[in-house]
Nucleic acid binder design. Sequence first.
DNA 1: ATGGTTGTTGCACAA
Length: 257
Amino acid sequence: MRVVTWNINSLRARQERVEAWVNEVQPDVLLLQETKLADDAFPTLSFEALGYTCAHYGQGQWNGVAILSKVGLEDVVANFAGDVEPDTDARIITATCGGVRVSSVYVPNGRSLDDDHYQYKLSWMDRLVAHLDADTDPSHDVIVGGDYNIAPADRDVHDPAKLVGATHGSQPERDRLESLETWGLTDVFRDQHDADRVYSWWDYRGGDFHQGRGMRIDMLMCSQSVIDRAEWSVIDRNARKGKQPSDHAPVIVDVSV
DNA sequence: ATGGTTGTTGCACAA
């Protein structure tokens, strides 16, 4: 079973590229972030024609997350589960696909360490753990994939010095990722690869992609039973090339079933 | 240090 997470930075602007990539790579489950669509604008019919069942949670203009599946899609939860304080933004959707409890998450950017949005980001990560407690159990097959807007370690960043005093690499953010690990999830890409200078996001500006200046902030966080069956994982940086790319590349894992 | 780019119920703001 092939599971992919991809922040596509507007589905409206990216539909053609996303469909071409999907036809090439044939994910069984595709987790999208930043669709920037309201639910009634989501192109369900286009994806159904490619063999997918879809669940979308969006608000238009900003945010928006989706799950596309060829292996079934059940028990959909938009927003946080249970009694967890609901998010005002559309940043998380959860479903069961092929026996795996998958979530597509778009963690708040944080903007800057002194911004209210940074506190919102930390709170959001705390609520994500509470959501997992309410929704499922680490002994199950669980994949929480998405744009975390957090680089797990300095080795996941082109220039760690530039992150000092900034978001994406601060200790409180990394502590939140560690809380997810404590809950029972593992970053499958890092579990499989020791390589440095592998990124999933590059700023559009200044030729950063071509200069190799990026960060690895998109992850597939997997429970142990999934990690044990993970055969292969890669970040497809080719998808960041060419005309009108998203600023993020897709992250792929193949899990034996 | 600054600025560079892309997207949006855009003409400022988020990333």
